[in-house]
């Protein structure tokens, strides 16, 4: 019995020693680990050797256009989260080129775009426009705010018939019967993000959108009544796409463009 406390003490001492040893070991390991990290970092801080120059960069437009795709999506698919950034894929090349040109000429409507296109040549901008015009990829549908039936009905009316009393032609009059655009200058308007469409109509109305290619939409947007921009943008944003969504040719347009609408196609070489 007399031995018992001392045995107990010895056990405690032993376990304490063991514990301490283990702690030391762990600490030592940590130090070693830290040293390894340090050496690794130092190794990385040293200058590169020529042998490591082995990155494989695809020789494609998609790779070249990384700056565009960051916001406009792969292959110009559109931005999945920001509805203010337009889809580029399938828009007619002349239209896209004129947009690039207006950013390059610094009309002051979007600083980020102006910076990105600043160093491009006209020839390269034509090539980029053609690239996005040729991409055939699925559309995404963006949500629209909740609207009363009448609002959507007004939107449909504007798209299909226009508002002749106010001198507003139907969207279909110029953007193609199926609203999928007309080569080379008029973009399709179906399934574009609601926010983007509304903001563009408002920019037209306040003379802030580019007039590099045409002033037609300025006239149209100013003739529209209050609430029309939202109505037509909402209706267009949720329409299913026709099976053949190719932009049509100017000759295939059933009626002539309104007399006050002149498309400036010079400088477009597509």
């Amino acid at each position: 019995m007399k031995n018992q406390p001392s045995r107990c003490l010895r056990t405690s001492l032993a376990s304490m020693t063991l514990f301490l040893l283990m702690s030391f070991q762990a600490a030592a390991l940590q130090v070693a680990e830290a040293q390894v990290t340090d050496t690794q970092i130092k190794a990385q801080k040293s200058p590169p050797s020529a042998l490591q120059n082995n990155l494989q960069i695809p020789n494609t437009m998609e790779q070249r256009l990384a700056a565009c795709n960051q916001c406009h999506g792969e292959y110009g698919y559109g931005n999945t989260t920001d509805p203010n950034i337009p889809r580029l894929a399938e828009k007619p090349a002349g239209y896209l080129y004129k947009q690039l040109l207006s950013f390059k000429n610094g009309e002051g409507r979007n600083q980020a775009m102006e910076y990105v296109v600043r160093q491009l040549s006209p020839a390269y901008m034509q090539e980029i426009a053609q690239y996005y015009a040729a991409q055939r990829i699925p559309y995404q549908q963006y949500p629209i705010p909740e609207f009363a039936e009448e609002v959507l009905a007004r939107g449909e009316l504007l798209a299909k018939e226009g508002d002749p009393a106010r001198g507003v032609p139907a969207c279909a009059h110029c953007h193609g019967g199926k609203l999928t655009g007309v080569k080379p200058m008029i973009p399709g308007v179906l399934n574009q993000p609601y926010d983007y469409m509304v903001s563009q109509l408002k920019l037209w109305r306040s003379n802030k959108r580019s007039t590099e290619s045409t002033q037609c939409m300025q006239v149209v947007a100013k003739r529209m009544r209050k609430g029309d921009a939202e109505a037509v943008a909402a209706w267009l944003a949720i329409q299913p796409l026709p099976e053949n969504r190719e932009p049509i040719s100017m000759q295939a347009l059933p009626e002539e463009l309104p007399g006050w609408c002149v498309l400036e196609e010079n400088e477009v070489n597509l």
Partner: peptide, 24 residues
């Protein structure tokens, strides 16, 4: 922040680009 293209020149007519990271 800004990314952007290398300058398009006769010697580098189709430059590659860097995505802007300002938003990301």
């Amino acid at each position: 922040l800004l990314g952007g293209f290398s300058v398009a020149t006769k010697g580098n007519p189709e430059p590659y680009s860097m995505p802007p990271f300002a938003a990301q």
